[in-house]
Design a binder for these strands. Structure first.
Lengths: 371, 371
DNA sequence: TTGTACGCGTTATCAC
DNA sequence: GTGATAACGCGTACAA
């Protein structure tokens, strides 16, 4: 059969063989630099030749299809083993349905425990369905988000889980129309109607603020991030709802936004506590800000009541244990992934909107009285 | 041209169209359940037909190849836009070199900050090279590690970064021989000679223990994980080296292994502190164990000197700030990824062995005197 | 500047 | 039970 082709390859190798006709494999790692036969990736075709059967028969064995004689199967299996053949799933997917058994996950920053817990939940479910997960970080950058999702779609991911950074997701519509499930996590889509899983941001924040109010606070400072980001905005809305419900006037001077950077969050603490009429309590709208604020309070040697959104490790062991609004980020990832696989398996309900509950965890910092 | 084929497709769609000849797109999300033309993923072929040019011309435009007339390019671009065509990278990679622009990363648990920092470093470098990363969790399970790496190789990842869980990596040899770069992180391979990036486990541990010794401790308890795991074993070796260097006898009673589970780590604290001749200081061999031990000490209301391997967030804000042996996990991921891309770009040096340095961070818990 | 023929490695179809 | 052949969507080689 196609010997000419193989001979051509062998000729190319000759220059790399030593005077004994062997490749100089012993010298380097894995014989790198020399191109011996083992460098050619075995295909079903080569397995077929080795086993003396047809291509299709190998395919049958590889995919455990029926209608293969017991001895034929044996023979093929042996050849597969010897050549250490591995099916090329790129080719397989191309032929089968042009989508891969891989899903995409776009988050802000895998190093943030909130997102790494989401990723853990997603990956756990994906493993159960024998899918793999491409994880990529948008770094809170709208353009990068779009580039990443394009790169994922070019790879024909079976579905996309996304914590959006941008504010117009109509660019996803063509892919969504093609049937690719797209599920939004933590923040809803803009200009796109699709599955969404959120935290109970507003309710959680409200619970936290009402807790502070119940402990006698009426001036509660807020240190938050980008007010354009949905989750932060909702948490702020919860704050205002709580104030309104208790007839406490809303004072803009107590609101510090755009404090995602640790340094800016620290400055906010200083700004708030040096006001003429300073707050007696603080509300921080996410884990990163909470930690920065705790550091600031510590270095300023100040104790103020504090409730933070998002739980974080060791919160309960700090000198003043931190009262937080906790939630299950891993569950968020798991449920999103489950919904994605349901979609892949034919679930064609209208876009779903799920809410992950929050829980107020009372530890001490939220129960400090006003000074 | 090949109209027969396309007509076949159109016929298949007719049954889904309504009596007006339109697909019932308005009813559901994205028109799910109805298969209209937009459900057929556009190919270069379809773009070519729409633009009235040949397949190859579309290919040229898509890949920014030269030798396309300015007006032709325009025409094709318009068709691409209108059909919202996206190149199929599965097919592209199949044709080109049968490896994808995707790399694999196998770690124990993405929810552990140590690994999520590694992942962050890897992904950052990968983005620079326009690669994506499939991240999968082995859950410290040798068999799963093997399954995952097989799944990755079937997807023809361009390279593999792995924190191994198993203790025999000869199964990777065939793939390594084919030229796929395989790089071990945090733990070296067994029965395989390949690139490896480790922390200075032994040196770091030794520094930490000598620090305790310098503060007057001679009975230092160790709470560690699986002694089979390389990094833990090395850290223990560093401990013994430090003792030996200071002529302090090694007492097996002070060693608690297999305490990866928080509960077991807590038990270890109790066991050690209730010994007839208890240790005056503790050494914890990783972040998870450190935190569990701190919780145990806290609930037992005990203060003992403590040095932990791995830094962790808020360690400096605890009532007794924790002295740790710190390192840059993100750098570990970055350097591993850089090495992988160097390999992909033809770097054929012998397998490299890199060591990431550690640093003793003095905070308080390591300076407590013996009771 | 543009197009044609073929092949990448696999699966589907339909013979035998 | 087994095999020949076409096709998946794209890129390469070469012709026009």
């Amino acid at each position: 059969m196609n010997d000419g082709c193989n001979e051509g390859r062998d000729e190319g190798n000759d220059v790399m063989l030593n005077e004994h006709g062997f490749s100089s494999d012993e010298q380097g790692s894995f014989g790198e630099g020399s191109v011996d036969a083992s460098k050619i990736r075995p295909t079903m075709q080569s397995v077929a030749k080795a086993a003396g059967v047809s291509l299709k028969t190998v395919s049958r064995v590889v995919n455990n299809e029926p209608n293969v004689g017991i001895d034929t199967r044996e023979k093929v299996s042996k050849a597969i083993e010897e050549l250490s053949f591995r099916r090329n799933d790129l080719a397989r997917n191309l032929r089968q349905g042009q989508i891969s058994t891989t899903i995409g996950l776009i988050i802000e920053d895998i190093a943030n425990p909130f997102y790494s817990n989401i990723a853990h939940g997603v990956e756990k479910v994906a493993q159960r369905y024998h899918y793999m997960v491409i994880i990529s970080n948008s770094e809170e950058n709208a353009q990068r988000e779009q580039e990443l999702s394009n790169a994922l779609f070019r790879r024909r991911v079976a579905g996309l889980l996304i914590v959006p950074a941008s504010h117009d997701h109509s660019y996803l519509l063509p892919e969504a129309r093609l049937g690719t499930p797209i599920i939004f996590l933590d923040r809803p889509p803009d200009h796109l109607y699709t599955d969404t899983i959120l935290l109970d941001n507003r309710g959680g924040a409200r619970k936290g603020i009402e807790h502070l109010i119940a402990h006698g606070h009426r001036r509660i400072g807020v240190i938050g991030g980008d007010p354009q980001v949905y989750s932060g905005a909702e948490r702020l809305a919860g704050y205002r709802e709580a104030l309104a419900a208790h007839a406490i006037p809303y004072d803009e001077a107590l609101l510090c936004s755009n404090r995602d950077e640790p340094l800016k969050a620290q400055e906010a603490v200083y700004e708030l506590l040096t006001l003429a009429d300073p707050p007696t309590a603080l509300f921080t709208t996410n884990n990163r800000i909470s930690i920065a604020v705790i550091r600031a309070l510590y270095s300023m040697q100040r104790q103020v009541a504090l409730v933070g959104f998002d739980d974080f490790e060791l919160a309960e062991l700090l000198p003043v244990p931190i009262t937080v609004i906790a939630h299950d980020a891993a569950a968020l990832g798991e449920q999103a992934a489950e919904l994605l696989f349901a979609r892949l398996h034919g679930d064609d309900r209208l876009p779903q909107h799920l809410i992950i509950p929050t829980e107020l965890v009372v530890r001490g910092s939220g129960e400090l009285p006003p000074e």
